[in-house]
Design a protein around this nucleic acid. Structure first.
Lengths: 123, 123
DNA sequence: TCGCTCCCTTACTAAAAGGTAAGTACCGCA
DNA sequence: TGCGGTACTTACCTTTTAGTAAGGGAGCGA
C-alpha cells in the first residue's frame, strides 16, 4: 500500500540515488550497518535514537527491495533477523562519503560564521 | 511561513548535507546552475520541466539562505534576476558527483537486470 | 498465569512537502 | 484596450511521509 512504484524515469544519476536514500533514517541505517557489519533489528533500533519500529521496518524493506541490504532470517524460536549491507550498499556508502565530508565542513562553517546556537533552546 | 527552522543538531555530515539538498528540484537546480553558470528565473523554469513557480522560488530562497546560490537583482523595468552558484554550491556539486555516478550505475543495473524501460515515453 | 522479549503488522493521525490557481506591478506591442 | 512577458506572492488543497498506539505468537523467568 505505502509502496509507491518509484524507480520512475530518472533525469540524472543524482535523481536515481536520491530515490534510494531519501527517508528520514536511511542514511543512518547505511552508516550503522557499514560500521558494525551485521546488526539485528533491535540493535538497529537502539542505534537510531527516536526511530519507530514501523519506520525501521519500512525503511529496511525498501532498502532490501533496492538491493542495498541483505536480510537473513533464522527460524529460531525467539526470532532472529540479521541485516547487513550488500555490495551495492557498500558502494553507495562510499559514494556518500564526499557528501558527508561536505556536510561536516558546512557544520563547521555555520558554527563559526553565523554563530548559530544549536544547543538548549532557552538556555 | 513555510520556513522551518531546520539546521537542527545534526547526527553526521550526511544529515547536514541532506538538509540542504532535500527538495524535489534542488539537485536539478544545482545541476542547471553548474552547467550554465548563470540563469534567469524563467530560464531555470524552462530547464526544469514540471516545476511550479512557487516551488522554484521557494527552493531558490532556501538555497540562497543556505549559501549555495547567489541572487542578483537588476532594478530594470522588465524585472531581471540572475542566479548562480556560490563557491559552496560548486563544492557541493563536486561532492555529489560520486553519488550521481553511483545512481547512473544503478540505472544501468536496473535496465539490465529487470529490463525497466526508462526512455522517452512517446518517441 | 503474568508479563517480558523478539520482529514485525495494521490502523489511525499529524505534519511536511508539493501542486494549482489566482493576484501583483510594470512595460511593450498590436 | 487587451495580451503577453517578467518575477514573484498568497491562499487553498492534495499527496506523501512520519509518528503513535495497539496487536500477534511463541518461549522463558517469576
Amino acid at each position: 500500500m505505502a509502496e509507491v512504484p518509484r524507480r520512475g524515469p530518472y533525469i540524472c544519476g543524482i535523481d536515481a540515488a536520491f530515490d534510494v536514500v531519501s527517508g528520514k533514517w536511511k542514511g543512518l541505517i547505511l552508516w550503522e550497518l557499514d560500521a558494525h557489519g551485521v546488526r539485528r533489528f533491535s540493535e538497529l533500533r537502539r542505534g537510531l535514537p527516536g526511530v519507530s519500529e514501523k519506520m525501521l521496518t519500512q525503511h529496511l524493506r525498501e532498502m532490501e527491495a533496492d538491493g542495498l541490504v541483505h536480510r537473513e532470517v533464522y527460524a529460531e524460536v525467539p526470532p532472529r533477523v540479521e541485516y547487513s549491507l550488500t555490495e551495492h550498499g557498500h558502494t553507495l556508502n562510499k559514494a556518500l562519503e564526499p557528501l558527508g565530508a561536505w556536510g561536516i565542513e558546512r557544520m563547521g562553517r555555520e558554527g563559526s560564521e553565523r554563530a548559530v546556537v544549536v544547543e538548549t533552546p532557552h538556555g
